[in-house]
């Protein structure tokens, strides 16, 4: 009888705090999304108005599309390159440790710090990128990377990619070490080519890691905020806006708290798909 309460003894305080700071706020945001609230007077219930407005709001779609672009680039570059680097570095290469450390070192830096440094790199006058291009004779390519709406988003994502790639590489490296060398040796004896070995042996064995990497990458790209806030504040004219930042600026700059909450809810629902995927993967792992 008493034993039944034992786990709750450990869980009581954490759960109370978790309810106050995480669960209740999540639910409250759902409620707020049905209200109009300027953050000062009390929230007015307006039903689905915020959502109607949202689905008619070009900036919302712009931000959503930017999030999607972010996601696609994140899946393409850091994941592929990260895997490739992990494959190379898992071999017996001189200085491998140093190379690994160099590649993942950006991820230890705060996004704000990276955002600041890359803003400087992209600065049209005096910045590293334009200077280098001029120096190697490609002056025609120079531009205001962050002020040009055609390049701004990619410039911001570039900084984020620089931070994320090392993380992916580390995860794959960890996954690769868990593959037993005998499997690989056996395939070598069977005469499989390097590509075959990668495609038919290593990749399937890496599947659990790959799922995690993809989910984490998706979540990272949907959460993107710091880079945008530091580098462009969503500008020029929303060309780099993403949902997380749009939510923030509506809620805390224009004080449409209800509307901001509605954007947060949509963001939450989109991410929930990935979260559910992740949870399923974890449960599967538990049942095994």
């Amino acid at each position: 009888m008493k034993r039944k309460f034992v786990p709750w003894m450990f869980l009581l305080l954490p759960l109370i705090l978790y309810t106050i700071w995480v669960i209740a706020p999540t639910i409250y945001t759902f409620y707020l999304s049905f209200t109009e609230w300027d953050g000062l007077t009390s929230p007015q219930f307006i039903g689905l108005e915020n959502y109607k407005y949202l689905f008619d709001d070009p900036t919302f779609y712009k931000s959503l599309i930017n999030n999607l672009k972010w996601l696609i680039i994140f899946l393409a570059f850091p994941v592929v390159v990260g895997l490739f680097l992990a494959m190379l570095l898992s071999q017996d290469i001189k200085w491998a440790r140093g190379f690994k450390a160099s590649i993942y070192s950006p991820m230890i830096l705060a996004p704000v710090v990276i955002g600041l440094i890359w803003s400087w790199i992209y600065q049209p006058q005096g910045g590293l990128l334009n200077n280098t291009l001029t120096y190697i004779g490609l002056k025609s390519l120079t531009r205001g990377w962050l002020s040009n709406p055609e390049t701004a988003l990619y410039a911001v994502i570039g900084a984020a990619v620089w931070r994320h790639t090392g993380y992916v590489m580390l995860l794959f490296l960890a996954g690769l070490t868990s593959i037993s060398p005998t499997v690989i040796e056996a395939s070598k004896i069977d005469g499989a080519s390097a590509w075959q070995r990668f495609r038919f042996i290593i990749l399937p064995l890496l599947k659990p890691t790959t799922v995690i990497v993809i989910v984490i990458t998706m979540i990272q790209s949907l959460r993107a905020f710091d880079f945008v806030s530091m580098m462009t504040r969503g500008g020029p004219f929303n060309s780099t806006n993403v949902l997380a930042f749009y939510m923030y600026s509506e809620a805390f700059r224009n004080y449409n708290m209800g509307y901001g909450a509605a954007i947060a809810v949509i963001l939450f629902l989109i991410m929930f798909v990935f979260i559910a995927l992740y949870l399923r993967q974890i449960r599967k792992g538990e049942l095994e």
């Binding site: 995480v22 706020p25 945001t29 959460r223 997380a244 939510m247 805390f252 963001l267 939450f268 949870l279």
Partner: peptide, 25 residues
């Protein structure tokens, strides 16, 4: 299991959803 999954979900949610209520709190 439910609590475990709740904590896992909690680490993945976009914290934007908490911003306004936590500010108020």
């Amino acid at each position: 299991m439910a609590l475990y999954l709740m904590f896992v979900a909690g680490m993945l949610i976009p914290f934007q959803i908490l911003l306004i209520p936590v500010f108020k709190l």
